[in-house]
Nucleic acid binder design. Structure first.
Lengths: 203, 203
DNA sequence: GTCTATAGCGCGATAGAC
DNA sequence: GTCTATCGCGCTATAGAC
């Protein structure tokens, strides 16, 4: 499919580079421990211990444990939100719709391990900092995937299409990336044709 | 679609009826508070307070807070697992596949509010008692939805189909149930035809 | 601006009396 | 079957050293 958007430029690195060295070290250690023991299974004490400082030192850089998590996932969310904004800026139509899906799939594939980790560490997902932000992007993506006047039919297909794509990618932790991209593109096209047919049926 | 399975008989009531009156009162109060403040947002102290007893009294009936949650969701899981078992017992083929999906959709519709609550209260979803059991049912459903030799293609479509159906139902908290059932049945058929086409493509 | 020391508080959980 | 008492732990908060 033709790529309508400019390639992504800002992103993962940005938000972290602006931090002090100490804060960045906290983030690195926290990420390592979270991936190893999970969010709930990692205490601020453990993070502080591995850094060789006290809990209060960690607390100086981040107001709370949730704040730390939010900082960790911010770059990935910023990337997705940026992608959504640029897609929403395109003129409405079938091209924008297809573009949204293919960009979303690329995004998922780019962050495959991270997404797989997140969907495994449900404790982290559950925190408001992550959960509520995810709700927002989810809504916007649904609206792009199944445009309409917020009617039941478009909401139904919005939910179906976005969940199907995410489910397809995440059900495949080890499949070859190019094969996956091709197959999911087929799935994507199939879903879009289904939505068009449903719209014609209902008018 | 023809209903191949016998109607469900055991279920929600069973696990709760076998309990003592006190234990049942604990479950009732816990459910009320969980739905109101979420799982994490509800302490055993609050549960005990509303019951007019102490935390320790609650602990007599349930070994842990997770145990309480497990008891709450057990009936719904038992129903789903029973449904899966009976479907798996059918001879392999397109009929079983269609049956699995329509039974699953009915199940989702039957427990719409509960499912919506669960997918909102991420903290409850995350507990091992719920999460791991859900993983199991998810796997079995995927296998029924996209049968195959555990190859990448069937796993991809298994994830896509099941997530699409759940996404479609859950994206519609207030839509009319019959309309929803009809539309989701269309979606279901569309997805199955997509899977068949993908299989033909790949051989 | 960066950290240490220390304390508070609520939580889930347990032991044992009645 | 229910209670009192208590434990240990985790996040949070503040005062103040450097």
């Amino acid at each position: 499919m033709a790529r309508v958007l400019r390639p992504y430029r800002r992103g993962v690195a940005v938000a972290q580079v602006e931090r002090s060295g100490s804060a960045q070290r906290v983030l690195d250690v926290a990420l390592a421990l979270f991936t190893e023991h999970g969010f709930d299974g990692t205490s601020l004490q453990q993070i502080a211990d591995r850094l060789g400082v006290t809990k209060a030192a960690v607390y100086y850089h981040f107001r709370s444990k949730d704040d730390l998590l939010a900082a960790l996932v911010d770059p990935a969310f910023a990337e997705l939100e940026d992608l959504l904004s640029r897609t929403e800026a395109l003129p409405r139509g079938a091209a924008r719709q297809k573009c949204a899906l293919s960009e979303f799939v690329d995004y998922l594939l780019r962050h495959r391990e991270a997404a797989a980790w997140m969907s495994r560490d449900a404790a982290a997902l559950t925190r408001p900092a992550v959960w509520e932000r995810a709700q927002g992007t989810q809504r916007r993506l649904e609206a792009l995937a199944a445009p309409g006047e917020d009617d039941p039919l478009s909401r139904l297909w919005g939910g179906a299409i976005t969940q199907a794509l995410a489910g397809a990618v995440l059900a495949q932790p080890h499949a070859d990336e190019d094969w996956l991209r091709t197959e999911v593109a087929e799935l994507s096209a199939h879903l879009l044709s289904g939505y068009r047919a449903a719209r014609r049926r209902q008018g």
